[in-house]
Computed example of a mutant assay.
Amino acid sequence: MTGDDLHAAKATLGEMWAVGRPLRNSELGRALRLSGRDPGRSIEDYITGKTRISGPVSVAVEMMLAGAMPPDPLDSVVVRGSRRGS
């Protein structure tokens, strides 16, 4: 999986999960249960090529694109409504 693939996956998952927009980096990071202070930064680093996308992240994203839901409820992953965030 490339950074471009991951960027495209944010749009596809946003559509699949009826968010009405591409997922934010932080949302995808939470869906993948990435650790650290800012999971969205990790997604940004993957997309820009600063950090290599690991096999487990690639597999998890591919599974979600194939219809698997993240392990946590979408309401805890996706920001809906007027809340802002990256």
Rank of each mutant, 00 (worst) to 15 (best):
G36W: 04
E15F: 08
M1L: 12
D38P: 00
V78G: 01
K50V: 14
A8I: 00
P73E: 15
A11V: 00
M64D: 05
A8Y: 01
L13T: 07
L74H: 10
A18V: 01
A18R: 15
M64G: 05
L23Y: 07
R83W: 04
L13G: 02
L65E: 05
M16A: 15
L32W: 04
S86A: 15
I53D: 07
D5C: 08
L32Q: 04
R37W: 02
L74Q: 10
R41W: 01
V57C: 05
M69R: 15
R24T: 03
V57D: 02
G20L: 09
L13V: 09
P73L: 14
Y46R: 07
D5S: 14
R52P: 00
G20M: 09
L32M: 09
G40N: 06
A68N: 11
S82W: 06
D5V: 07
R52N: 06
L32D: 02
V61A: 06
V77E: 02
G29N: 09
A68E: 15
R37V: 02
A68V: 07
R33I: 04
G20F: 06
S35R: 15
M63N: 13
Y46C: 09
A68G: 00
G36K: 04
P71M: 12
V61T: 09
L34I: 14
H7D: 08
P73A: 14
G3F: 07
G3A: 12
L13E: 03
G81A: 10
E44N: 14
P70F: 12
K50I: 11
P39S: 09
A8H: 08
D38L: 03
P39L: 05
G40S: 08
G49L: 11
I47H: 02
V61R: 03
D4K: 14
A68C: 10
V59C: 03
M1P: 05
R33C: 13
T12P: 00
L65C: 10
G67I: 08
S76W: 07
V57P: 00
R83F: 07
L32N: 02
Y46K: 11
S58I: 05
P70K: 12
L34Q: 08
R84Y: 03
A60E: 11
L23C: 09
I53H: 13
G40F: 04
M69K: 15
W17N: 07
P70E: 12
R83D: 06
I47A: 10
G67N: 11
L13Q: 05
L6Y: 02
H7S: 12
A31W: 02
D45Y: 11
G40Y: 02
I47M: 10
P70I: 06
A11K: 13
L65H: 10
P56T: 13
